[in-house]
C-alpha cells in the first residue's frame, strides 16, 4: 500500500507520505510552530508534545504530531 497515507490509509497527496488532510495538518503544524517559537521560544520537539496534549488540537493534527514524536522524525 505504498500510495496510501501512513496514518489513515487514504490515498497519498503527490510526493507526500500523507493524504491530503494529514498533509494539510502537517503544514498547519509547521506554520503554527513559527508562531509558537516566537511566543514561547520553544523547540520543535516540545512544540509537538504541547500540541499533541492540547484539547483544542484537531484530530488529524494530533495524529501527525504524535507520529512525528513517536518516530523521532523531529
Amino acid at each position: 500500500m505504498q500510495d496510501r497515507c501512513t496514518l489513515c490509509g487514504r490515498r497519498r497527496k503527490g510526493g507526500s507520505k500523507y493524504c491530503l488532510y494529514h498533509q494539510r495538518a502537517y503544514e498547519n503544524l509547521k506554520r503554527a510552530f513559527e508562531r509558537w517559537r516566537q511566543a514561547l521560544d520553544i523547540s520543535w520537539v516540545e512544540f509537538l508534545k504541547e500540541v499533541a496534549g492540547n484539547p483544542e488540537t484537531g484530530e488529524w493534527a494530533r495524529e501527525v504530531a504524535e507520529r512525528l514524536t513517536e518516530r523521532g522524525l523531529l
Partner: peptide
C-alpha cells in the same frame, strides 16, 4: 477543525 493547530 480536524487539522486545526492552536497557537498560544
Amino acid at each position: 477543525i480536524r487539522t486545526f493547530v492552536p497557537v498560544p
